[in-house]
């Protein structure tokens, strides 16, 4: 059977909301980071969905860009997180607020 496009979109929406909520309410940096990934992939899912629906390959091309950016972001982000954990055994995002104006 063919799954309607709306279902994919609903799944993507759920993923995005979970990611966004997690980002806002969780304190653990690693979890927040994973939430960002979740949001990115929710967007990827909508791209692919619309690409199929509209029969347009450029949606899928955009996904590759997002994947590349996400990979780069993981490298930088994980680097920062490792650096933070080296300085203190346990850290929440709120502990890192030296950029306070």
């Amino acid at each position: 059977m063919r799954v309607p496009a709306e279902w994919y979109l609903v799944v993507a929406l759920m993923l995005f909301v979970i990611g966004a909520t997690g980002l806002l309410i969780r304190r653990n940096i690693l979890v927040m980071f994973m939430c960002v990934e979740l949001m990115l992939n929710a967007v990827n899912l909508t791209f692919v969905t619309f690409s199929r629906t509209l029969n347009d390959i450029s949606g899928q091309a955009a996904v590759f860009f997002v994947l590349v950016v996400a990979a780069a972001e993981v490298v930088v982000g994980l680097g920062i997180i490792v650096a933070i954990f080296r300085r203190r055994a346990e850290a929440t995002a709120d502990d890192v607020h030296i950029l306070k104006g």
Binding site: A20, L23, H97, G101
Partner: peptide, 18 residues
């Protein structure tokens, strides 16, 4: 005055972006 909105908390910024 403007520096007050720079809290240093990631969640504040995330909320702002959202």
């Amino acid at each position: 005055q403007l520096r007050r909105i720079q809290t240093g908390y990631v969640r504040t910024y995330a909320l702002g972006i959202g």
